[in-house]
C-alpha cells in the first residue's frame, strides 16, 4: 500500500506532466522577455499574446477567418478522401500500378508540396479554388498510402468467407474489404486533414487571400507582432484539438477491431 502511494507520488499523471512542461516553458519565456533577454518586439511575451486575443476576436474577425480556413480544409480533406481512397484502391488492386507508383506517392508525402502554389494560381486564379486544390494535394499522399496499406492488410480468411457466400467483387469490397480496412484508412484521412490544414493556412498566407493565413500575413505587415503570434497560437491550438478529437475517434474504431 505504502509503496503504491510512493509510486503514485513519483509518477504524476501524464496530463499533469504535459501541461506542467508547457506552463514551465511559458513562464520561462515570459521571464526572459520581461528581463530583456529576448526582444519583446520580435518575440512578445505570452501575456501580450494572450491579451491580443480580444483584438483578434473583435477587430480582426478571427471567428470568420477560422470558419473560412477550416471550411476550406474540410472541403479539401473531403475531396482528397474521395480521390485518395479511389487511387489507394487502384494501387491495391493492380499489382503493377502498386509497384510503379507507391514509392512515388510516399516520396510526395515528404515533399513540400505547398511550393506548387504558383501552378495552381495560374490554373484556378487567386481564389478559394486554389486554396482547396492545394489542400487536396497536401492530404492525398497519406490517404492514398493508408488506403493501400489497409486494403493490403485485410486477412485473406475474411475474403475467403465472402467467397464462400458467393459475394460479387463489389459486395466483397463494400461488405468486407472496406470495413476491415476502415481504421487504417481513417488514420490516413486524419493525417490528411492535418496536412490539408497546413497547406490551406500556408497558401492563404502566401497568396494573401482570406482565412487565418491572410489574417496572420496582414498582422505581420502591420507589425502587430503580438496579435500575429496570437493568430499562430490559435491555429496551433485548433490543430491540436483536431488531432486529439480524431485520435479519439481512431482509437474507438480500432477498439472494435
Amino acid at each position: 500500500m505504502a509503496s503504491a502511494t510512493l509510486t503514485s507520488l513519483r509518477k504524476p499523471p501524464a496530463i499533469v506532466t504535459r501541461f506542467g512542461a508547457l506552463a514551465l516553458f511559458l513562464l520561462g519565456w515570459e521571464a526572459a522577455s520581461r528581463a530583456g533577454w529576448i526582444s519583446a518586439f520580435i518575440v512578445p511575451p505570452p501575456s501580450e499574446i494572450y491579451n491580443s486575443f480580444e483584438m483578434l476576436f473583435v477587430q480582426e474577425g478571427l471567428v470568420d477567418a477560422f470558419l473560412r480556413t477550416f471550411g476550406e480544409a474540410f472541403a479539401a480533406a473531403g475531396l482528397g478522401s474521395v480521390i485518395g481512397i479511389a487511387v489507394g484502391y487502384l494501387l491495391h488492386r493492380s499489382k503493377l500500378a502498386g509497384l510503379a507508383y507507391t514509392d512515388w506517392v510516399a516520396a510526395m508525402a515528404s515533399a513540400p508540396l505547398v511550393l506548387l502554389y504558383p501552378l495552381f494560381l495560374v490554373v484556378f486564379g487567386r481564389n478559394s479554388a486554389t486554396i482547396v486544390a492545394m489542400g487536396v494535394v497536401g492530404c492525398l499522399p497519406p490517404i492514398i498510402l493508408k488506403t493501400k496499406e489497409g486494403l493490403d492488410g485485410v486477412k485473406p480468411v475474411l475474403l475467403n468467407v465472402g467467397r464462400t457466400y458467393g459475394l460479387t467483387p463489389w459486395r466483397q469490397f463494400r461488405m468486407i474489404q472496406f470495413p476491415a480496412a476502415l481504421p487504417t484508412i481513417f488514420n490516413g484521412v486524419r493525417i490528411g486533414l492535418l496536412f490539408a490544414i497546413i497547406n490551406v493556412v500556408g497558401v492563404e498566407y502566401l497568396i494573401v487571400f482570406g482565412g487565418l493565413g491572410q489574417m496572420i500575413s496582414d498582422l505581420g505587415d502591420r507589425f502587430e507582432i503580438a496579435a500575429m503570434f496570437g493568430g499562430i497560437v490559435f491555429v496551433i491550438l485548433v490543430s491540436v484539438c483536431f488531432f486529439f478529437i480524431t485520435e479519439k475517434i481512431e482509437t474507438w474504431l480500432l477498439s472494435s477491431k
Binding site: K155, V157, L158, N160, V161, T164, Y165, L167, R171, K257
Partner: peptide, 27 residues
C-alpha cells in the same frame, strides 16, 4: 457447402449477431 476456417474469421467490426446474420444479409 459451408466452411468453418482454422483461422479466426469473425468480422471484428460486427457484433456477434451481425456476424451470424452476415450470409443472410448478403443474400
Amino acid at each position: 457447402i459451408g466452411v468453418v476456417f482454422q483461422e479466426e474469421s469473425t468480422f471484428p467490426w460486427r457484433t456477434a449477431i451481425d456476424n451470424v446474420a452476415f450470409p443472410m444479409e448478403a443474400a
